[in-house]
């Protein structure tokens, strides 16, 4: 029996490097494992407590801060067991800090941008947005990056620094939005009648808002047509389906009333033959 204890003791005391033995390595591993468990429990509890009280994006950020904060503390507490003294680290930190600082400035920049995005909240998960030249639905806002599912279904990861410094268009941040059609009718058609036809059609559509009311007016006397502007407000969540639906319906309704959309045309005047 004693032999077994002796063997275990000799294994635990076996020096790996610089005074660090197997027992130290096991302590380090145990601390890391316990830390990860504590971090996961804390993360779950943070979610349970805050779920009903804070928005999803903030909840995600809090979860991550809690989780990685505990991991960081545990890791720092465990470091001395593998031969890294914190005081030594602080001394070495000066030089290492500069080196790491240069190496990780992009990461830090993304991290800070991510924090500002979470505070400023120009976008939320599920919003339809355009960030720089990428348009789509926000799927996740992480500490370092934001992921977008583009309109055609492609996964795009954008570093938070780029998100933060880009022009952001959020299509659903406001409850309602406006879109516009330009519709040309023939010069011989009655523009007032056309306006009435379009107005009646728009009134029948549930998603075309009663207020702000649609605006329909003669905008321009064009080369080939009298151009009507049709401005419509719709709930931001459904505006695109309304936009794709209404243009054809307007065309059909106008034609039903004998009002036509003309082709481009040019009147050519033929000069008479000169008599010689």
């Amino acid at each position: 029996m004693n032999d077994i204890f002796e063997t275990i003791k000799s294994i635990l005391d076996y020096k790996i490097y610089n005074g660090v033995n197997v027992a130290d390595l096991l302590r380090f591993t145990a601390i890391i494992i316990v830390t990860v468990i504590i971090a996961k429990v804390a993360k779950i509890n943070a979610r349970r407590i805050l779920k009903e009280k804070v928005p999803k994006t903030t909840l995600n950020a809090v979860e991550k801060v809690v989780y990685y904060g505990i991991i960081f503390i545990g890791f720092m507490a465990a470091l001395p067991y593998i031969g890294f003294s914190l005081s030594g680290l602080l001394v070495a930190g000066g030089i290492a800090g500069i080196v790491i600082g240069f190496a990780s400035q992009t990461v830090v920049s993304n991290f800070i941008s991510g924090l500002f995005l979470l505070i400023e909240k120009p976008i939320k998960i599920g919003d339809g947005v355009s960030i720089g030249d990428v348009g789509g639905v926000v799927k996740d806002i992480r500490i370092l990056s934001t992921t977008i599912r583009t309109w055609d279904g492609i996964y795009v990861r954008i570093p938070n620094e780029k998100v933060f410094t880009s022009n952001i268009k959020n299509f659903v941040a406001h409850a309602a939005r406006r879109f516009e059609y330009k519709i040309g009718i023939r010069y011989k058609d009655d523009a007032e009648k056309a306006i009435e036809v379009i107005k009646k059609l728009l009134e029948e559509h549930p998603f075309i808002l009663k207020e702000p009311a649609p605006q329909i007016f003669v905008e321009e006397l064009g080369d080939s047509s009298v151009n009507l502007a049709v401005r419509i407000w719709a709930p931001s969540t459904v505006w695109f389906s309304v936009k794709t639906e209404m243009l054809w319906k307007i065309k059909v309704a106008l034609e039903k009333e004998g009002i036509q959309i003309p082709f481009p045309q040019r009147v050519i005047w033929m000069a008479g033959k000169t008599e010689g």
Binding site: H174, E204, F207, L209, K210, E211, W233, P235
Partner: peptide, 19 residues
């Protein structure tokens, strides 16, 4: 019924309502 919606409040902070 024939549903219709309306905006209550300004576009930037108002709410969509069934009218």
């Amino acid at each position: 019924t024939m549903p219709k919606y309306i905006l209550y409040g300004p576009p930037e902070s108002g709410i969509i309502c069934k009218w």
